[in-house]
């Protein structure tokens, strides 16, 4: 039960920068959706969404400044989910 009060305080400016990044990415994803890339578009959309999601997790949800255990847990959860989808598709792709 050691003292753990080394709290990192993010500045207002940093939050603003993160928001601008997220908004730019939103514009990109809308524009790309209009380009009619066909089957590729879903992957592009998901990649952009993942970048946005990671940004939210890292800065707004403070993962960057928290203990590493949280990053490990979050990574584990997303990996687990990816594996579940992948394994389910072993059935659907080869049916």
């Amino acid at each position: 039960m050691e003292k753990e009060h080394k709290h990192h305080i993010s500045s207002y400016f940093a939050h603003g920068t993160v928001l601008v990044t997220l908004l730019v990415l939103t514009v990109i994803t809308v524009v790309v959706a209009g380009l009619k890339l066909g089957p590729l578009s879903v992957f592009v959309a998901l990649i952009i969404a993942s970048i946005k999601g990671t940004t939210v997790l890292t800065y707004f949800m403070h993962l960057k400044y928290d203990k590493p255990i949280y990053r490990i847990m979050v990574f584990g959860v997303f990996l687990l989910f990816a594996l579940i989808i992948g394994i389910t598709f072993i059935d659907y792709v080869f049916r």
Binding site: A33, G38, A45, I48, M61
Partner: peptide, 26 residues
């Protein structure tokens, strides 16, 4: 407050994925 904030970001995070999957299918 931090925990409340985390919950709110979760709501945002899910929407970030829902948005392209529902509205931007081409």
């Amino acid at each position: 407050l931090e925990n409340g904030g985390l919950y709110w970001h979760l709501v945002d995070l899910i929407w970030i994925f829902l948005f392209p999957l529902l509205y931007l299918i081409t």
